[in-house]
Computed example of a mutant assay.
Amino acid sequence: MGAGGRLRNPTRRRRSAGHGEGRIDWVRTLLAKGPARLCRTHLRHRPPPAGSLTLHCLLLDCSASMLRGGRLARAKGLLLAWTAALYRRREALAVIGFAGERALLLQPPGKAVAFNERWIAAIAAGGATPAAAAVALADRVLAQYRRRAPNTRIALWLLSDVRFAYLPPPPQHADHSTVIDFDEGPRALGRALHLARAWNADYVSACTLAAPRSR
């Protein structure tokens, strides 16, 4: 994520839609570019539209371990940039925070809006990491949303250091998932990569994303 606060795509794998198909997806293209100069190999294209929009569902780990090394602050910076990008694209957003013994729906599914600094800044951390509760809540919320908008594509993003005892089952109502790994340094456990493989999800280390400073 660059200084301009635009989301870059952590996905490194090419999709079945080739480079020449659909319009350029700038959110995913900028994520693929990272800090490098933009070139043709970074381009990501949207597949031909099959529905009205995409819903991005973010699962934000707010447990105590995310306070180490400013992990939560960086995740909140990523979330702030994400909401701005999705607002410009007129896409939909849902945010679930999880900490302690429960998961909470911080933002119900709906069109992304501008001016998100206040509610994002208020997100606090502490306690354990109820990841399974977060996935279960996401499944309930997304199932309800799918019934209302059956043609909507759903992308799920987990922002976490994956410092929890049990890996949750994969979400059932997401068309694609990405795990953004905040567990860094010499004592990293590598559980996020294991989870991404178990979910058949994309994986990206958060240290490769240059998120803007949180406010």
Score class of each variant (00 low, 15 high):
130 P>C: 00
103 A>S: 00
115 F>H: 15
59 L>G: 01
97 G>R: 14
90 R>K: 15
25 D>I: 00
36 A>N: 02
140 R>D: 12
69 G>H: 02
188 A>R: 01
18 G>Q: 10
214 S>Y: 13
47 P>D: 09
45 H>K: 09
73 A>S: 12
64 A>D: 08
56 H>E: 11
21 E>F: 04
19 H>E: 15
79 L>H: 05
166 Y>P: 07
20 G>N: 11
162 V>A: 03
23 R>Q: 12
123 I>R: 06
168 P>C: 05
142 L>M: 05
54 T>E: 11
47 P>L: 06
53 L>F: 15
176 H>N: 10
151 N>V: 06
92 A>C: 11
151 N>P: 02
102 R>D: 11
56 H>L: 10
11 T>K: 07
143 A>I: 03
198 A>F: 03
3 A>D: 15
42 H>A: 11
192 A>M: 05
171 P>I: 03
189 L>E: 13
164 F>L: 15
127 G>T: 00
160 S>E: 05
108 P>H: 04
23 R>C: 06
28 R>E: 13
18 G>W: 07
152 T>F: 05
1 M>I: 06
52 S>N: 05
94 A>M: 03
211 A>N: 02
42 H>K: 13
129 T>S: 01
209 L>P: 00
12 R>H: 04
157 W>G: 04
154 I>A: 08
120 I>N: 00
140 R>W: 08
192 A>H: 07
59 L>I: 04
168 P>K: 06
128 A>N: 06
215 R>D: 11
4 G>Y: 09
120 I>S: 01
165 A>T: 09
13 R>S: 08
112 A>G: 05
2 G>L: 10
28 R>W: 02
25 D>G: 00
203 Y>Q: 07
196 A>N: 01
124 A>Y: 00
77 G>W: 03
89 R>C: 10
97 G>W: 14
148 R>S: 15
63 S>I: 12
66 M>A: 11
28 R>S: 12
42 H>T: 12
18 G>A: 10
88 R>I: 01
177 S>D: 03
83 T>P: 08
95 V>S: 05
5 G>A: 05
167 L>A: 14
100 G>R: 09
136 A>D: 12
203 Y>H: 08
142 L>S: 01
201 A>S: 00
18 G>E: 11
195 L>K: 01
167 L>S: 11
68 R>N: 11
107 Q>E: 11
77 G>M: 05
140 R>H: 12
45 H>S: 15
196 A>C: 02
128 A>K: 08
212 P>A: 08
26 W>Y: 13
70 G>D: 03
122 A>D: 07
122 A>E: 06
175 D>Y: 02
180 I>S: 01
191 R>S: 08
146 R>W: 09
142 L>I: 02
49 P>Y: 08
211 A>T: 04
115 F>Y: 14
44 R>Y: 01
126 G>Y: 00
63 S>Q: 13
122 A>V: 01
156 L>A: 14
19 H>K: 14
118 R>M: 09
162 V>S: 03
41 T>F: 07
171 P>N: 05
208 T>G: 07
9 N>P: 09
81 A>P: 02
56 H>T: 13
86 L>Q: 00
72 L>T: 05
86 L>S: 01
193 L>H: 06
